[in-house]
Write a protein that binds this DNA or RNA. Structure first.
Lengths: 92, 92
DNA sequence: GATTATAATCGCAATTTTGCGATTATATAA
DNA sequence: TTATATAATCGCAAAATTGCGATTATAATC
């Protein structure tokens, strides 16, 4: 849970996910163009998102297509919902 | 958004929030006892959660009562829900 | 085979985070 | 007033993250 939140804890990675969520085509180069960061940096963020399982990459030729992993995506959605919808017994 | 996710991106901070969510009494010392970390470390995590607005602390005497800020809590809940319930147009 | 386009990796510097011992501050109790 | 309990702060070391230039790998194209 903390790991997933951590992966979301960087503006570039949020931006990547938002981009991927509305894009049908999701080639690496496009993401690099979208962000004000060097290719190596973007790739590093993609790698981190991949390590956590949030996205997956499919290589076809010289291009790689990055996509949100719907299954993990939904699991995370539930996990967060679960945390935030706890009944809070506040005292102050 | 990234800032909030970042604040959630550490197991100790998740543990603190989960503890606070089910505790009515939420004195600093109790949280320290709950976690396998030194007092200074726990306090640092509390400070980070506070900076982001997730929790608030009310001093009364020598004790301080920490609580989840319900308003921010709910805003975050929506923010995350908003991100995760986007319609994804996947390609791979 | 050589060239080009794309993606991935390496290695480094700068910065940030994490964890904690030691100290300080403050209110309560003796 | 002194002692005690609790919380907050300081300052440091170790580790992790961030960003990127340079290089390497690989497939497609000429």
């Amino acid at each position: 849970m903390a790991k997933l939140a951590k992966a979301l804890g960087h503006p570039a990675r949020i931006a990547i996910l938002e981009y991927l969520s509305k894009q049908v085509e999701c080639v690496c180069g496009d993401i690099v163009d979208e962000l004000p960061l060097a290719q190596a940096t973007v790739l590093q963020h993609l790698k981190e998102l991949k390590e956590v399982g949030l996205i997956k990459g499919e290589i076809s030729g010289t291009k790689t297509c990055y996509c949100i992993d719907m299954q993990v995506w939904q699991e995370i959605q539930w996990m967060f919902a679960d945390l935030f919808t706890k009944t809070i017994k506040n005292c102050c």
